[in-house]
Computed example of a mutant assay.
Amino acid sequence: MSTDSCHCGVITFDAIIGPEKVRICHCTDCQQLSGAAFRVMAPCSEGDFRLKTDEPKI
Rank of each mutant, 00 (worst) to 15 (best):
M1D: 06
M1E: 09
M1V: 14
T3C: 08
D4R: 04
S5A: 07
S5P: 01
S5W: 07
H7L: 15
H7K: 14
H7T: 13
C8S: 11
G9A: 00
G9T: 07
G9D: 04
V10Y: 03
I11T: 10
T12G: 03
T12N: 03
T12F: 00
T12D: 00
F13N: 07
D14G: 00
D14I: 04
I16R: 08
I17S: 03
I17L: 07
E20S: 13
E20W: 02
E20R: 11
E20N: 08
V22S: 05
V22F: 09
R23W: 00
I24A: 02
C25M: 04
C25I: 05
C27V: 09
C27I: 08
T28R: 11
D29H: 15
Q31L: 02
Q32T: 14
Q32D: 00
L33R: 11
L33W: 13
S34R: 03
S34I: 07
G35T: 08
A36M: 12
A36Q: 14
A36S: 15
A37P: 01
F38M: 12
F38H: 08
R39W: 05
R39K: 15
R39P: 02
V40T: 12
V40L: 10
V40H: 03
M41L: 13
M41H: 13
M41I: 12
A42T: 03
P43Y: 01
C44K: 02
C44T: 10
S45F: 03
S45K: 14
S45M: 07
E46G: 05
E46M: 06
E46I: 13
E46L: 14
G47P: 09
G47E: 10
D48T: 01
F49T: 02
L51H: 08
L51V: 06
L51I: 12
L51Y: 12
K52L: 15
T53L: 04
T53K: 09
T53V: 12
T53F: 09
E55V: 07
E55A: 13
E55Y: 13
P56R: 04
P56V: 00
K57A: 07
K57V: 13
K57W: 01
K57G: 07
I58Y: 09
